[in-house]
Write a protein that binds this DNA or RNA. Structure first.
Lengths: 197, 197
DNA sequence: ATCGTATCTTTACAGTGTAAAGTTTGCATT
DNA sequence: AATGCAAACTTTACACTGTAAAGATACGAT
């Protein structure tokens, strides 16, 4: 446990990001503020500026943290569904929705950041882990002579759109607390037709 | 032209919504504020409260206005692409992306509102125009004995996800100023396989 | 002409982001 | 151990924003 002296928190950068994640779960995107993060981390409101510059910088750091957590989450989802190629792909899609259910506002922050900014933090956009999970899961469905990202973009568009519409209650009545398996499977049936038969 | 007396704008509700739409195009979602809308409409910062209650209420009204404009836009897109069922469906999808390119922040406001709120303003969710356009365009692709909304949700998920990812620069490099026809057609090729063959 | 309600304006306050000046601490150097 | 510098904060200040309350003006009904 880091010892905090009067002017030296010790691990404030991390603490602020963690505070941000907690606030997002507690109060949503609109409840996230620089001062609340600072208060939660036990420092004055101006302390974050030294590490992040401003609120946009802090959001960038939070978004990147979500990116990292999400990547690991998707890797686990892929590893869990090993039965077949299509089961793995659908398992990843299900994981995408589940992550959104568990942390809707985290996704909002992550997708509110320009990809160039995540790339800057990541150092290599093309090797981003969650995208790599998608790429590997889609690989079996890419017809010969076809650019892999065509199928990747089809899948990503479908699942991202479904997640956004479902989480915002546009595909269903009532509060979203879990995946509606029936409707989910029905929409994801389109994944059975990724490659022309 | 409405004559504005000292304490009576005449059509402030409309003016504030219009001001909001303009601000969204000029400064994006983060540049939208109650005070800026009021200033643009030529009234004091507290005037909107009488009509909308608060900022959330004003956003709701702006979102509903976008909903109305978008519905007409989609109706026009559907009418324009009359060649075949699939051409019409793809034309609507293309219109969805184009609308987002033209007014990204308008979509952000519209999708930031709970559908129950739009329903309250609309009076009948199931009859919402843009959804009706989607429904009619999807109808030819619904297999016998299948619930229509399954295909509708597949199409909506795909095009909504594509629009969001494309507009935020996750599917392409550089600034988004127009639809990339090649990539768009490649992703929308999935629409050719809506019904099992 | 009068009255009540609608439609504003003005004043005030809390929360927020950012900036600048100041203080404290850790670490490197001597 | 002493010193100095930069890092890592705190404090103070200000502008912007949302909201609320009190007050002023205007419209429409009677």
């Amino acid at each position: 446990m880091t010892t905090k002296t009067k002017h030296h928190h010790g691990d404030l950068k991390n603490a602020l990001v963690k505070a941000g994640l907690a606030l997002l779960d507690e109060e949503g995107l609109e409840g996230l503020s620089l001062r609340k993060c600072a208060a939660k981390a036990g420092v004055s409101h101006a302390a974050p500026a030294h590490h992040f510059g401003n609120l946009a910088g802090l959001k960038g750091a939070i978004g990147f943290e979500v990116f990292t957590i999400f990547s690991k989450y998707m890797q686990d989802a892929a590893a869990r569904e090993g039965d077949s190629d299509i089961a793995r792909l659908k398992g990843i899609c299900r994981g995408y929705v589940q992550f959104g259910i568990d942390h809707k506002s985290w996704l909002d922050v992550m997708f509110g950041i320009a990809p160039a900014e995540i790339a800057k933090l990541r150092g290599d956009l093309g090797d981003s882990n969650s995208y790599q999970v998608l790429r590997q899961a889609c690989a079996p469905f890419v017809p010969e002579g076809v650019e892999p990202h065509i199928v990747e973009f089809q899948v990503w568009s479908l699942i991202h759109g479904y997640t956004q519409l479902f989480l915002s209650g546009r595909l269903n009545q009532g509060e979203v607390t879990q995946i509606d398996d029936g409707p989910f499977d029905q929409v994801m049936a389109l994944l059975d037709r990724l490659a022309p038969s």
